[in-house]
Simulated assay, not measured.
Amino acid sequence: MASNFDLYVERRHTDSDKWHKYEDTEIIPLWVADSDFKSPPVVIEALQKRVAHGVFGYGYPSPALIDVFIQRMKQRYQWDIKSEWLVFLPGLVCGLNLCVRALTTPEQGTIAPHPIYSPFMKAARFANRNQISAPVKLQNKRWVLDLEATENQLSGSEKMLLLCNPQNPGGTVYRRHELVAQLDFAQRHNLIVCSDEIHCDLLLDEGLKHIPFASLSEDAAQRSVTLMSPSKTFNIAGLGASIAVIPNTALRHRFIEARSGIVPSVDILAYVAATAAYQGGEEWLSEQLVYLRGNRDLVLERINAIPGLKLMPIEATYLAWIDASGLAVTNPHAFFEQAGVGLSPGSDFGNPNFVRLNFGCQRALLEQALTRMANAVATLPALA
């Protein structure tokens, strides 16, 4: 049965971080990256069955979850992985932080794209590690990593390259030759690579293919930690189930040791949801992608019709990285918030002239938000 992604689900007063921020206002929340869609029925049914059991003790990843994840990586990405490489985590962000703390020393620096999802920057700051910003530049209407500009900043103390593919917030899906260039960069500078691939299932351009960094070669596998999760794909982020794939034994042991006594194990309901999603959520995912493509096309059309705003093509994710530098405002995030649309401020990602819009929502709500944005901009004086 086809899922109804146009169904509005009331999320106010449901302990939703996304909706609570503007709970007693008329502001439409299109900021933090969870979607407003009901999760796949197979996930809901599995959770209901597990809740009915009534006992919620400590859990562990079942053989079924491990097997379906390994099979999925093989079928979708032609990536052969082994069960002993897997480390299950209660979220992907803690994986970023563990990578920095476990696999670098205080004297060693990190390299991260810029602009980027804010936990990349925070992970270095929390661990008191220096971080070099690798600029993400616009090339043929795609946001890509500028490795040449990054090279000129290196001091020689850098030990880790943090990657994000698909890129958040730009929505770029890196091609093989671009990933090979990133691997070559890591090899020349003897870098460990932490690759956030949480949006890998949400490819909006049908001709594109996600390529895990670690699948490029044996060398790529041995110098990398790949972070994945069903959370964005199936809208189960609040349950907290993520997976670090670490082929290198020494790196894996350091990673596991660093989490001991600090990062808890995964909740049993999260394991249940992840297993059900991977086993039976493919049809729902395909339907969601069709709906998201329609939302993406709507956002591109409407945003680029607003004077002062620019939006490049979005290859993946349900996130739009909007250039608002052409507006006669000092703070585009505050401006649109006053107009009734709650976006993510570009300053969180490293560029205050941008805003990020989450279009993982009902189309009618999205249309309303876009109309508010257009109406607000129409009140501004035109820039000379």
Results as ranks from 00 to 15, higher is better:
291 Y>C: 09
291 Y>M: 10
292 L>C: 13
292 L>H: 09
293 R>M: 12
294 G>L: 09
294 G>V: 11
294 G>E: 15
294 G>N: 15
294 G>P: 10
294 G>K: 11
294 G>W: 00
295 N>R: 02
295 N>W: 02
295 N>H: 12
295 N>I: 00
295 N>Q: 05
296 R>H: 08
296 R>V: 13
296 R>M: 11
296 R>I: 10
297 D>V: 09
298 L>A: 09
299 V>Q: 00
299 V>T: 04
299 V>H: 03
300 L>G: 10
300 L>E: 03
301 E>G: 08
301 E>F: 01
301 E>N: 15
301 E>W: 03
301 E>K: 15
302 R>I: 03
302 R>T: 13
303 I>M: 03
304 N>C: 04
304 N>E: 06
305 A>S: 15
306 I>K: 02
306 I>W: 00
306 I>Q: 00
307 P>N: 10
307 P>M: 10
309 L>K: 01
309 L>N: 04
310 K>I: 00
310 K>T: 12
311 L>G: 05
311 L>N: 07
313 P>I: 05
313 P>C: 11
313 P>K: 10
314 I>Y: 02
315 E>V: 01
315 E>H: 07
315 E>C: 07
315 E>Y: 01
316 A>Q: 05
317 T>E: 11
317 T>C: 06
318 Y>H: 09
320 A>D: 06
320 A>S: 12
320 A>W: 04
321 W>R: 02
321 W>A: 11
322 I>H: 11
322 I>V: 15
323 D>M: 08
323 D>K: 08
323 D>G: 01
323 D>Y: 03
323 D>F: 01
324 A>M: 02
324 A>L: 04
324 A>D: 07
324 A>Y: 02
324 A>K: 00
325 S>T: 14
326 G>F: 03
326 G>A: 03
326 G>L: 01
328 A>S: 15
329 V>R: 07
330 T>H: 14
331 N>G: 06
331 N>W: 02
333 H>V: 00
333 H>M: 02
333 H>S: 00
333 H>G: 00
334 A>G: 15
335 F>T: 00
336 F>T: 03
337 E>Y: 13
337 E>A: 14
338 Q>P: 00
341 V>P: 05
341 V>Q: 08
341 V>D: 07
344 S>M: 14
344 S>N: 10
345 P>R: 14
346 G>P: 10
346 G>V: 06
346 G>C: 05
346 G>H: 08
347 S>H: 14
349 F>S: 09
349 F>M: 14
349 F>H: 12
